[in-house]
Design a protein around this nucleic acid. Structure first.
Lengths: 213, 213
DNA sequence: ATTCAATAATGACTATCATCATAATTGACT
DNA sequence: AGTCAATTATGATGATAGTCATTATTGAAT
C-alpha cells in the first residue's frame, strides 16, 4: 500500500486497538447490519449468505469467519437487541403491582417483541434452545442471565421472608415462560392462550390466591 | 397429496386396504428403518438423504414425499419409540414414593433415553421445540400429551383435595423438565446439575418440605 | 378389457451453504 | 526500509438437500 504518510505514529498511545482490530469490528458491524436488513426485508430463507456478503462488501467466505452458519448469524444479529429489550422491560415494571403482574408485563413484552417477525423468531429460538455452535454459549447465557436475574429480583420481593429460594423460583418462572413462548412460536398454541396459561401457572408458582370462577 | 397422516383409505370400505396403501406403509417402514440404522451408525450429519433412499430402495425424491426434510425425518423415526419409552416409564412408577420422586423417575428415564445419542437428541429436540413442518404437529402433540397426561396423574394424587389444578401443575412440571432437558442437551449444563435443579424445582412446585442441608 | 383421473414415484437438476487452499494484510522487530 | 510470522480475507469449489417435470401405478367405472 502506498502513502498514509507513514502514520505509524499512532502506535505511541495505545497498543490495544490496532488497525487490525478496528477493521474486524467494522467488518462485523457491516455484516450484522446487512444481515439484519436483508432478513427483515426478504425473510431468512430467501436471503442467501452471498447476498449478505455482497451487501456487507466482503467475500463470501469471510462471512463464516464471523458466524459459524447462517443460523448462528441470526443469534449475533439479535442478541444485543434482545438483551436491551429485556433490560428495558425490567426497568419499567408496573409499580406496586403483584409479582405475577410484574412478571407478566415482562413476558408480554417479550411476546410482543417476537411478534415482529415470527419466522425469524422461530429460527432464533431453535438456536437459543440448542445452539449449533458452542461458541455462542456465552452470548446466549448473557441473555438468559438478564431475564433470570430480573425474575429473581421480582421473586425476592415476592417471597419476602418466606421459605422459597428466589433464584430457584426465578428459574421455574423462566422455564414456564420459555415453554409458553415455544408453544406459541412453534405453532402449538395461540398467543393469547399461551399467555393466559402462563399467568395462571405463575400465580400458582408464586403462591398467590388463585381466584377461580 | 397432503393426505392426512395415517389416514385410512375412506374411499373404499373399511376392510379394503388397497395395494396402494399397503405399498405406502411398507415403503415408509423401510425408510424409517434405513434412516434409523444409518443415523445410529454414522450420525445425522454424516448420513445423506441419498444414502437413506438407497438403503430403503427408493428414489431420492421419494424420501421427501414421506418427510419434509432430513430433520423432519428424525421426528418420524423417533416419535413412536419416545412415546413408548414415556409410557413405559409411567407404567412402572416407584410405588408409594412421593410425587416428586415419581416424577423424577420419569424424567431421569427420559434423560437416560436421550443419553444414548446426544447428537440425534439435539436435532430431535430442535424439531420438537419448533417443528419445521406444521404437518408434524399432531405427532409431537401426541408425545407431549402422553407426558403431560402422566404428570397430571401424579399431580392429582399429589394435590389430593388441595387447591391446585393438577393439569396446570402438570404443565408447569413439564415446562421445568423441558427446560432442564434443553439446558443439558443444549450444552449449557451438566446432566447431574440439571437433574439436581429439576428435583429442587419440583419439590418447590409440589409444595413438599424442602430438606436443605 | 379398457379408460382415465388421481395418486405416487422417480432421478436429473438447481440452489446454496460452508470449506479450504491461496493470497493479502498487519504489526513487531531489526 | 526490510523481514517475517501471525492473522485475516478471499472466491472457486464441493457436497448435498430438496424440487419438479415426467413417468408409472392404481383402482373405480364402464
Amino acid at each position: 500500500m502506498t502513502s498514509l504518510a507513514t502514520n505509524q505514529n499512532d502506535r505511541g498511545n495505545l497498543h490495544e486497538i490496532g488497525r487490525r482490530e478496528r477493521n474486524k469490528r467494522a467488518k462485523k458491524a457491516r455484516i450484522l447490519k446487512a444481515a439484519r436488513e436483508l432478513f427483515d426485508k426478504q425473510g431468512f430463507a430467501e436471503t442467501t449468505t452471498s447476498e449478505i456478503a455482497e451487501a456487507a462488501d466482503i467475500g463470501t467466505g469471510t462471512l463464516f469467519l464471523y458466524a459459524r452458519s447462517k443460523e448462528d448469524l441470526l443469534v449475533l444479529v439479535f442478541k444485543d437487541e434482545m438483551v436491551a429489550a429485556a433490560q428495558e422491560l425490567f426497568a419499567h415494571l408496573p409499580r406496586r403491582a403483584s409479582p405475577v403482574t410484574q412478571m407478566m408485563s415482562v413476558f408480554k413484552g417479550m411476546f410482543d417483541y417476537h411478534s415482529q417477525n415470527i419466522e425469524l423468531s422461530q429460527i432464533l429460538l431453535r438456536e437459543l434452545v440448542i445452539p449449533s455452535s458452542s461458541e455462542r454459549t456465552a452470548e446466549i447465557d448473557e441473555l438468559l442471565d438478564v431475564i433470570r436475574g430480573g425474575l429473581a429480583g421480582i421473586a425476592r420481593q415476592a417471597c419476602g421472608a418466606a421459605n422459597a429460594d428466589p433464584e430457584l423460583t426465578a428459574r421455574s418462572a423462566f422455564a414456564i415462560y420459555y415453554y409458553s413462548l415455544i408453544s406459541w412460536i412453534g405453532g402449538a398454541a395461540q398467543q393469547t392462550e399461551s399467555l393466559a396459561l402462563l399467568r395462571r401457572q405463575l400465580s400458582a408458582l408464586l403462591g398467590q390466591e388463585n381466584k377461580r370462577a
